[in-house]
Design a protein around this nucleic acid. Structure first.
Lengths: 196, 196
DNA sequence: GCCTCCATGTAATTGGTTACATGATTCT
DNA sequence: AGAATCATGTAACCAATTACATGGAGGC
């Protein structure tokens, strides 16, 4: 469902092809809501059938340009305002779920696992920061600004995750000697500084 | 998939019923990976058939107590260490996805939307903090500690989301008068302080 | 001629949600 | 006696992933 409306939103902003949309997901949106090319093409088909978007051009290499119709834009607005309480917003974060079961592993295995996860999310955060810096400064329609905001939230979420993993790791290390050390890592002890 | 392993992990910790597992999701795990009772019962059936868990008791009111088998625990370990690169960890965050299309709405509508979302996530964060405080101080098997860690990461992720929404809201307000204000909200200007 | 990137799709399967359905026990 | 909570499930549907599949255009 969300992918459907995400596509509609992007097409309300500017006409694009399935390929362009796929790239948009890869470079910014995907950080908070991933989608692959095949799902995108399938949803485009449905949106087209429902009259929420229209194909406005057929270019070289089979390229098909789509844009949101009036009905489509109206439907998107309706969705934004009326559909679902905030309580029902989809949220999924697998890394902490996995980390939750590390007590099953040997200390060194658990540490290696956490180190790997942490490095990845830290790198991902930096990648997003980079992406944001390479965005154009011109912003005719506000779409660049939107991407910047996605980058901003991605930055803080990935940063937090990485920090949490660091804290988890330290806690496991400190725990090593004694059997009980509950409550020692209830909070994130090295918060990342939001960039100044 | 993740739900399957989450259940296996909880049952490796201590024997529980489907009902107990459902409660665990409602009170802590659900913050990062939601699951409803029917999905839980379905996955339990599959785990049972696969020999990864076993029913160890049949109590009053049809209560069925399950525990992870040796094979189950081994499989969980394998999953933790071998399955999937960190890059493939499932991550989904719907709120920023919605916020991304606010430019379609009137200024007051957009503000109302953001205010509603922000209030919800702030409340959710506080609720998690409360939950964490009511956890027992005794922790025989480490499961309380695990719940505390989930609360910790939930706290920072929900806090960040709420802060991001605040920043978004302020940016839209500041923008009101002039047409362009790109780059003004690239970063989160009011980071929540991780509790001391 | 070969590789890479552009560009689009289908089919089968799994994961997850919504709606429906029911019975036992405890509390008031 | 009625309500709340405990407790477990099925069926239908929708969302998402994985695997499979193809062709055009431009650069080397």
């Amino acid at each position: 469902m969300s992918v459907r409306y995400a596509l509609l939103g992007l097409l309300a902003e500017a006409p694009m092809s399935g390929y362009d949309l796929t790239k948009r997901f890869e470079h910014s949106l995907g950080a908070i809501w991933p989608a692959r090319h095949n799902q995108i093409y399938m949803e485009l088909k449905k949106l087209l059938e429902a009259g929420l978007i229209a194909q406005i051009e057929y270019g070289a290499r089979n390229r098909k340009l789509y844009a949101a119709t009036g009905t489509g834009t109206a439907e998107l607005k309706r969705w934004l305002m009326a559909e679902l309480e905030p309580a029902d917003r989809a949220l999924r974060f697998e890394p902490p779920l996995r980390a939750n079961f590390l007590w099953l592993l040997e200390a060194d295995e658990a540490d290696a696992f956490l180190a790997r996860e942490e490095a990845f999310f830290r790198a991902r955060r930096d990648w997003l920061a980079e992406q944001a810096q390479t965005l154009p400064t011109e912003d005719a329609d506000g779409s660049v600004e939107a991407r910047r905001r996605i980058a901003a939230v991605g930055l803080s979420l990935f940063g937090d995750l990485a920090d949490w993993l660091t804290a988890y790791r330290r806690a496991l290390r400190d725990e090593g000697g004694n059997g009980d050390s509950a409550a020692s890592v209830a909070t994130n002890s090295t918060p990342h500084q939001p960039d100044a």
